[in-house]
């Protein structure tokens, strides 16, 4: 990460990755749509999965990832 190099984009300086940044932008655009397209677009981009990290050959407790995309913007 070149976060303290000169002339980095502001979002990278804030520690985001490109895809996080573009995701936030896309979400903003989605929120700008008129109804009913807005809720349609937001519903389309729901996120659901569960992640388990493995340490020494054993799975740790899985963590569910469930976001409605409008929630964190």
């Amino acid at each position: 990460m070149a976060s303290n190099a000169a002339a980095v984009p502001f979002w990278r300086a804030a520690g985001m990755t490109y895809i996080t940044y573009s995701n936030i932008c896309a979400n903003l655009v989605r929120n700008c749509l008129k109804e009913p397209y807005r809720s349609e677009a937001i519903n389309r981009e729901k996120v659901h999965f569960s992640v388990a990290k493995w340490v020494d050959g054993k799975p740790q407790k899985p963590r569910d990832e469930e976001l409605w995309h409008g929630n964190h913007a």
Binding site: S50, V51, G57, K58, P59, P62
Partner: peptide
């Protein structure tokens, strides 16, 4: 199983 780092399901 020693080489598994992450597991994503559902």
């Amino acid at each position: 199983k020693k080489d598994i780092e992450l597991n994503i399901t559902d």
